[in-house]
Design a protein around this nucleic acid. Structure first.
Length: 570
RNA sequence: CGGGGCGUAGCGCAGUCUGGUUAGCGCACUUGACUGGGGGUCAAGGGGUCGAAGGUUCGAAUCCUUUCGCCCCGACCA
């Protein structure tokens, strides 16, 4: 390819609306352009890179025996109604009606469609196991798209689905995916961290996210500095030593706390209590069959609520209650809430509060608190659970070493779905005994766009992107210094042809610009190697520049193709 | 959905508060010349319904109303 004839619209300035490094660089290097919120066009260089990532994913999926499909992204509502997700999913699904007034949606994932294929096409255990996959456009009406392609409303995902006759088979498929994912991310130059994760509304028993540590990430992960424990903070727990309360068997005592609304205020209030001796009472509304009902969540005063932990504990979707709902439930406004004596509202308490005595909490009477509260004696706890967010440095539950909290990008997520879809949609096979058994399913996703962005997050400097060879749009750029110097352009053309003949992906920068401007572009786009026929030609030398090492070397013109072959195959 | 910010040339921005010639700057682009190892210099050019609609006014990028879009924080998130 000749640079002058390729559409590579590089920009000198960062786009004003980009924040994440990968977002800025993808726009500046001419990889993408924005069309709308969370909607991006891939330009030729960007699309080459995405296709490289797809090819790697495809190879590793094929290597575990997965078969590639291509399913529609346009779905009739019926199939989503069968699984129950038409109603379970909220505004995140793009929905509309066709000309016949039939309800439709754009696919946000493909469990339902693959399950239909499995239901119709798989009838015997002898046909199992199966792993099916596709690389396809997905649509999610994200409440808040951000960071370029990291959270888009249209994106490309590799999604795969496994079908087995039993749980042991699912475990095999799940492990195969975990191994394949590790390889995929390794090949893309991304250091991936598998973490325990929450399955969310996808359903199923177990899930593992693959995370790439990055300040541009939206998730926090907790990772043990010593052992292999790692979890999304939504799921992470720690082995924090219990707080030792002084014995206190005094009766509970209500006392006035005028104007005191926060834990912090009560710490400094005379007659108040230290934050770790307070009980924080949060009211959430639970979405159930008969509408929304309040639940109370109790955590130690200095802890933060882990909302996903709370959802897991309650077993239903939650949202923070509005003030009117709180007053209706407890008779007081936020700031004076407590669970003492509450009987008709379910109370979920963090395990760290178990057995605590001498605690202080709200009295459910505006501007009043109660002290000498004993968890066991005074509060009817429906369920003890992990409700608090772990904090940096807390001891690992496995080995006691400190946990490290880091921001990360979710680049893959694998789920053990079990019977979630096969039962609701009636997908079964006949087992060895001639009996129908529901298919045991798994589902597995990798965000192609996120691979590209995460690779940039991991490999860039102030000049631009530093592609690993596996994703580089071109391996080599040949760029003469003076386009009106016949010796240089002759050497350039010959090198261009010779590298192409070797099957090396090369771009010839034939633009009649000054070298500095061209070099800046090469480095912004991140092409791993540059060959420059210049003043050294008189001595038979060209310059070979290594973008990632940021090193230049003079190499004999006659040897440079061999040298590049060597470096590219290393 | 709540809070904040922003829409002026391909990109980055000034001008808006305090209405007033023909709307400006840098980069990019076109032409020519010089130049050529790190975003060159000089000269001459082209490109704008100032997000949209309505209103106030002799006069609106600027004031008012409505509306659309984008970004950030939060909520939410498969």
């Amino acid at each position: 390819m000749r640079w002058s004839q390729t559409f590579i619209p590089t920009l000198r300035n960062d786009p004003a609306d980009a924040e994440a490094a990968s977002h800025k660089l993808m726009v500046r290097a001419g990889l993408i352009r924005q069309l709308g919120a969370g909607i991006y066009s891939y330009l030729p260089i960007g699309w080459r890179i995405a296709k490289k990532a797809e090819a790697i994913v495809r190879e590793e999926m094929d290597a575990i025996g997965a078969q590639e499909f291509y399913l529609p992204a346009l779905h009739p509502a019926e199939v989503w109604k069968e699984s129950g997700r038409w109603d379970a999913i909220g505004g995140e699904m793009f929905r509309f009606k066709d000309r016949k007034d039939a309800e439709m949606c754009l696919g946000m994932t493909c469990e339902e469609i693959f399950t239909v294929l499995a239901r119709d096409g798989l009838s015997s255990y002898k046909q199992l196991p199966q792993i099916w996959y596709q690389i396809q456009c997905k649509f999610r009406d994200e409440p808040r798209p951000k960071s370029g392609v990291l959270r888009g409303r249209q994106f490309t995902m590799k999604d795969s689905y496994s079908f087995d006759v039993d749980a042991a088979g699912l475990d095999v498929a799940f492990d195969k995916h975990a191994v394949a994912y590790k390889k995929i991310f390794d090949r893309c130059g991304i250091d991936s961290i598998p973490v325990e994760a929450s399955s969310g509304a996808m359903g199923g028993s177990e899930s593992v996210e693959f995370m790439a540590q990055s300040s541009a990430g939206e998730d926090w992960i907790a990772r043990c500095k010593k052992c292999d424990y790692s979890a999304n903070v939504e799921r992470a727990v720690s082995a924090l030593a219990p707080v030792e309360d002084a014995p206190d068997d005094a009766a509970i005592e209500k006392f006035p706390t005028p104007g005191i609304r926060t834990i912090k205020d009560l710490v400094t209030f005379e007659g108040g209590a230290a934050a770790d001796r307070q009980i924080k009472t949060l009211v959430m509304m639970k979405r159930g069959e008969e509408g929304e009902t309040p639940v109370l969540l109790l955590i130690q005063g200095d802890d933060e609520l882990n909302e996903v932990g709370a959802i897991d504990a309650v077993g239903a979707a939650l949202r923070p209650a509005h003030e009117e709902e709180i007053v209706k439930a407890l008779g007081a406004k936020p700031g004076s809430l407590g669970a003492v004596g509450v009987k008709d509202i379910p109370v979920f308490a963090d395990k760290r509060l178990k057995g605590r005595v001498g605690m202080t909490t709200g009295a459910n009477h505006d501007d009043h608190h109660v002290r000498h509260v004993s968890m066991e004696r005074d509060i009817t706890v429906t369920k003890w659970a992990d409700l608090r967010l772990v904090r940096d440095g807390e001891p690992c539950v496995k080995c006691g070493a400190p946990l490290d909290l880091k921001k990360a990008i979710e680049i893959g997520h694998i789920f053990k779905l079990g019977l979630r879809y096969s039962e609701s949609m009636g997908a079964s096979v006949t087992d060895q005994n001639g009996k129908p058994v529901p298919l045991v399913m798994g589902s597995y996703g990798i965000g192609i766009d996120r691979i590209v962005a995460a690779a940039i997050e991991a490999h860039h400097d102030d000049k631009g992107i530093k592609w690993p060879l596996s994703l580089a749009p071109y391996a080599v750029v040949v760029s003469p210094i003076k386009m009106n110097d016949e010796a240089q352009t002759k050497a350039g053309e010959e090198l261009y042809a010779a590298l192409q003949a070797e099957g090396i992906e090369v771009v010839y920068d034939d633009r009649n610009d000054r070298p500095g401007a061209k070099f800046k572009d090469h480095e912004l786009v991140g092409i791993p190697y540059r060959v420059v026929p210049g003043r050294g030609l008189a001595d038979g030398l060209v310059e070979l520049y290594d973008r990632r090492a940021d090193e230049k070397a003079d190499v004999p013109l006659a040897d440079v193709v061999a040298e590049l072959k060597k470096r590219l195959s290393a």
